[in-house]
Design a protein around this nucleic acid. Structure first.
Lengths: 177, 177
DNA sequence: GACGATATATATCATGTTGATATATATTTT
DNA sequence: AAAATATATATCAACATGATATATATCGTC
């Protein structure tokens, strides 16, 4: 699934500018799909060429002109077709786990820092998700929040449980070079 | 962190061809970092230009010639420097959660299928990780396995616990269009 | 013994994505 | 009054994706 397809999804929730869609990516989609302006604006341009979205240019006196995009019927069908055929995959790119994999090459101080930093970030994400959980939303969206909470809590517990032993073991097992 | 850097990491484990490194990505790194030939071969070429890896061309009678790459001292320092400065991030791209977010646009049959398929894949990954867990390996690597087990188990439990209610709710909440 | 599948090995390429930067102005915070 | 944040679009080099091409060997199986 590419950014073009998820832009159709974003517009299925209501008309929006590229800027609005970026905010949606940063808020509602942030814990499972990332995209920046560099992929969103070209995606909208191509979708417009293909007739899957249309837009109104809204003149604004004190701001750059807005392009408010809407999903066309063709675009809506395209999106539903994508949902029906996209396999439910999940892909993780974890710099954190790369650092753990090569823990034996890290100075002890740095390994401790890395664990703390990653723990902090997870606790921050947890708070965001806990706030979202309190607000009401459709069951599908609620599920994405519960799933995020479950995996984030598991990550935090795993780190808290193994941290001390890990810091100890890495430097007793370590071959001095 | 880019593929170039992780190729240095791969070579820190021992000399290898591009083909060998691809296997390492598919096995040891697969649950936290993906890369294909299309990024590995260009990465090795650039690293060689920069003097961070060297290679021996091994002629083989019955196979295409091998290029066996080795980490140079410069490359090793570069890798350790990268480990010391890379922030411990984690990024997920989940087509599964996109499908859940837009569950209200999926036919009931398809939603059930998606959940089952994703559950099956997670159980498959779980078995791979459980097998890895039994084999002995350094503490840092062991940690990446435990972390994978913890988050995968949390994902499976979360789906098993909410699946039935979700299937029910989505289609009772749904606005018929 | 033949056939298909898998393994060894490198390489390329169009398309898509990343992350930063540029441009301009308004509003909010310090 | 200055600095930071928000509104809004757009571009770009560098990097990554995923598929495909090329050749041969080996392994299983019917």
């Amino acid at each position: 699934m590419d950014v073009k397809t998820l832009c159709l999804g974003a517009l299925s929730l209501g008309d929006a500018t590229g800027y609005d869609i970026k905010k949606l990516f940063d808020e509602a989609f942030s814990h499972f799909f990332a995209a920046g302006y560099g992929s969103i604006y070209p995606a909208l341009e191509k979708l417009a060429e293909e007739g899957k979205v249309s837009y109104d240019r809204k003149q604004q006196e004190k701001r750059p002109d807005k392009k408010v995009f809407s999903l066309t019927p063709v675009g809506r069908e395209e999106f539903i077709h994508a949902l029906e055929t996209t396999p439910p995959r999940e892909k993780v790119r974890s710099e954190f786990l790369v650092l753990m994999f090569f823990a034996h090459l890290l100075p002890p101080q740095r390994l401790a820092e890395v664990l703390q930093e990653f723990l902090d970030e997870n606790n921050k994400n947890l708070k965001v998700l806990e706030d979202l959980e309190r607000g009401g939303c459709p069951p599908g969206i609620k599920f994405t929040i519960h799933y995020g909470l479950a995996t984030t809590r598991a990550a935090i517990e795993c780190i808290e449980q193994s941290r001390d032993a890990l810091l100890h073991e890495v430097y007793s097992t370590q071959v001095i070079q």
